[in-house]
Amino acid sequence: MYEFIKNIDRRWIFLLMFVSVAIPILLQIQFPEKATDLAVTTYEAIEQLNPGDKVLLSFDFDPASEGELGPMATTFTYHCAVKGLKMYFMALWPVGPQMVDERIEKIIHRDFPDMVYGEDYVNLGFKSGNEGVIKVIVTDFRKLYTTDAYGTAFDDIPMCQDIYSVQDMDLLINVSAGYAGTKEWVQYAVTAFPDDIKMVAGCTGVQAPLLYPYIPDQLPGLLGAIKGAAEYEKLVVERYGLEDQPQYLEGIRRMGPQLVAHLLMILLIITGNVIFFIEKRREGQS
């Protein structure tokens, strides 16, 4: 047995990971959540806005990271819609517009059918250039965005007519899976115009440690991975009574598999170290 574990084929580890994720999903195991400070400040940043305030939502992620970032993007969209904020969606990633479309289809069209495209929300689509896009639109939107994602001229869209730059937004919400994303928004938008641009963000777990140095001055609110999404979800769900709507509980649901997977990781690390020490002792004896 010891020899088997010592020389274990990594495919057994893959199988263990698969089982540890699959079982909580199949059994729909859920755990309670407790919102930490960063989730609360993120929630408050949106909650404090007034109906009609302008929010720029930059969805800088792709289907690959949707499993991790999709739930928070959904909750951000719902929260802005229910508050009656004007939503300007955009993306620095080529497939970001599809992430936006999905939220428009599943959240706005389904739960807020009275919202009018071009008056209450607009999808400005993707622009290539990464941080180059940010550098331009922080001072002039029209230099890059001549139309929305569907080809309608920027100035023909009612809610865009009084928008000149990102500085005209009351809040910037960024959901990011890497480059270009939260770090670039902080460096080229918030840092350049600290009095005019306020930002909260959600990011993948790997990115989160890199963004902590920007908290709280440049980045007052940050949701780190599914854990952050679940905490924020809890606040929004409790405030707006969404307990019976599964599409707004995705983050909380995904914390079940995360817990079991983390426990498996700890078990694997301990097992690996036990083998390491046994081997070390044997080497010492011989």
């Binding site: 990594r10 580890i13 263990l16 498996l264 990781m265 690996g272």
Partner: peptide, 10 residues
Amino acid sequence: ASAAFRAFRA
């Protein structure tokens, strides 16, 4: 998971 098992040694 596989990297954790193999590389995390005290």
